[in-house]
Amino acid sequence: MKKIIIGLAITLSLIIIGTIVLYQRSTITYTRAQADTVAFVRERTNLDQVSDFHWFNGTETYLTVTGTNEEGQERIYIVQQDGGQITSFSAENTISEQEAVRMTREARDPVKILNARIGMIDDTPVWEISYRNENDRLGYYIVNLQTGEWLRTIDNI
């Protein structure tokens, strides 16, 4: 009986360690991109405190850092992955994540909101809200970050 308990403990320990290693390996790219983007933005702007990070993949990849600058103003910094061009906005001149999600709920009536991320489409800053519809299919609702104007919907993926 003692051997069985030791065997189960070892097996359980290996499963837990394997799960931890798998999780770390699966998130290392995201974690590294976040750290590199924050450092890049801090070097080139007056970003002080970071509040959020978004990774957006459209026709191009954009990495977004939101936070406050040294003057305490809420800012959004959108970094183009290829080339490193930074586009910056005052958060007070944009719609909030909550507002973008509310607009998505009203327009699409999703079963579940998966996430919201900031990016750029054709030089227009956007909120991309991903969701699951009633058929458990993936959808995206995209609105202009500055005006809240609906730009496009991609549904039933």
Rank of each mutant, 00 (worst) to 15 (best):
G83Y: 09
G83V: 08
G83M: 07
G84D: 07
G84C: 08
G84T: 04
Q85Y: 11
Q85G: 05
Q85V: 12
Q85E: 11
I86M: 07
I86R: 06
I86Q: 03
T87V: 10
T87Y: 14
T87E: 09
S88L: 11
S88A: 15
S88D: 11
S88Y: 04
F89E: 01
F89P: 01
F89K: 00
F89Y: 15
F89V: 02
S90L: 15
S90Y: 06
S90V: 05
S90E: 14
A91S: 13
A91G: 06
A91C: 06
E92G: 03
E92V: 11
E92S: 13
N93S: 12
N93Y: 04
N93G: 14
T94D: 02
T94G: 03
T94A: 10
I95P: 02
I95G: 03
I95M: 09
S96N: 06
S96L: 05
S96I: 06
S96D: 10
E97C: 05
E97D: 14
E97P: 04
E97S: 09
Q98K: 15
Q98M: 10
E99H: 12
E99V: 10
E99F: 07
A100C: 11
V101F: 05
V101N: 12
V101Q: 11
R102C: 05
M103H: 05
T104F: 05
T104G: 06
R105S: 12
R105K: 14
E106A: 15
E106T: 14
E106Y: 03
R108L: 15
R108Y: 14
R108I: 11
R108P: 13
D109P: 06
D109I: 09
D109R: 14
D109M: 12
D109L: 09
P110H: 14
V111Q: 12
V111N: 13
K112Y: 08
L114T: 08
L114M: 10
L114A: 12
N115H: 09
N115P: 03
A116R: 06
A116E: 10
A116P: 04
R117W: 00
R117D: 06
R117Q: 12
I118R: 00
I118C: 02
I118V: 09
I118L: 08
I118F: 01
M120G: 00
M120S: 02
M120P: 00
I121N: 02
I121F: 01
I121T: 14
D122Y: 00
D122I: 00
D123N: 15
D123E: 13
P125H: 02
P125C: 04
V126A: 02
V126C: 02
V126S: 02
V126Q: 03
W127S: 04
W127P: 02
E128Y: 04
I129E: 05
I129P: 08
I129W: 11
S130D: 12
S130C: 03
Y131K: 05
Y131W: 00
Y131G: 01
Y131E: 00
Y131H: 01
Y131R: 03
R132P: 00
R132H: 08
R132D: 06
N133E: 03
N133I: 01
N133H: 00
N133L: 02
E134H: 11
E134G: 09
E134F: 13
N135P: 04
N135L: 10
N135R: 15
D136N: 15
D136R: 08
D136P: 01
D136H: 06
L138I: 13
L138V: 04
L138D: 08
G139N: 07
G139P: 03
G139I: 04
Y140C: 00
Y140H: 11
Y140L: 05
I142E: 01
I142P: 01
I142Q: 04
I142D: 01
